[in-house]
Structure formats: C-alpha cells, structure tokens
Amino acid sequence: MLKPTLKALLLIGTVLLTSLSSPMVSAKGVYQSGPDFIAEAFNQPPNKATLWLTNDIREQAAEILGRSLPELRVRYHKLDNKTAWILEEIGKEMPITIGVVVAEGKIEQVKILAYRESRGGEVRYPAYTRQYLGASLTNKNNLDQSIDGITGATLSVWAVNKVAALALYYHGQVINSRDPS
C-alpha cells in the first residue's frame, strides 16, 4: 500500500516539476548585433542615413504602432532602392529589437536581433519570419499578406507585424523623398 502511494506522489512531483521547468527554457538573448545584421543584408557597404520624423510621419507611424513615438529621428542604411531598419517594439513588457530589410517596397528579410521577454521567443525562428518575405504595405498601412500567429506568442507576433509595417512605411518615405543617400 505504501509503495503505490509513494509512486503516486513521485509521479505527481515529476509532472509538477516538468511544468515548473518548462517556462525556464527562456528565449531571452541577443541573436545578432546591428552592424552584423547590416553587413549581412547588403553585398557592399550601404550608406548610413537618418530619417527625421516630421509630424506627418509621426502621425502615420503612431497609427501603425498604436502608440506615439518618442524619438525625433530614426537611423537606417540604404543602397540603391534597398533599405535596412533596426527598430524596437514592446511585446508584452520588454522591447524586441527587430531588423527589417526592404527592397523595392517589399520585405526582403525580417530578423529578431534581440528578444528580452521570457515567453513568445518563437517569433525568432526563420520558419515564422519567412512569412514576411515579399510583404508590402496596403493603402491603409497594413501588411498585404496574412501572417500566421503563434500560440502563446500573440503579443510578440503583433510587435513583429507592427515593426514590419513600420519599416515598409519608413522605406516608402525615404524612397519618395528622394533622399540623397
């Protein structure tokens, strides 16, 4: 009678320990530095440039992000009609640093450079980020492709969606303004 009781307790303990340790498998970390991402995105060194966020741009960007932008300017890299952006957006509580490469108005690459949340790090997997390839912006500043979500990573997925749309919008502003760089 004692042995089955102990076995049952051990089984319950194992199940609880497994459920306890699963959230500890954290996705937190820096996966690639900004300079490395830029070097990888272009065949030759791109031009560094700055996009000053005018009131119009800030208004549209705020609409895309669903929040106001605190900063007055954004850095980017440009070569011909290709731009690369390193942007941050909060998933649940912490900012996710995301690199986006846009060429000819379409997304060429999305990469999670740094992930700081304890959950939802699945968005960094290429199987997920690959969905953004070829996406462009609709007239309403939304992505023209539907992106499949990830269970348990909804907020991170939303953050990546917003940043992808924002990078496309910034790209449009840079290309349309005929920036000297």
Partner: peptide, 16 residues
C-alpha cells in the same frame, strides 16, 4: 535629447 528634453534618439549597444 534636445535641450527641452525631447528624445532625439538612443544609440544602443546593439547598434554599435
């Protein structure tokens, strides 16, 4: 920041 305290930008370690 601007002299009034508006954020111009943050230069982070991830950016170099």
């Amino acid at each position: 920041l601007t002299a009034k305290g508006e954020l111009i930008e943050s230069f982070t370690q991830l950016q170099g």
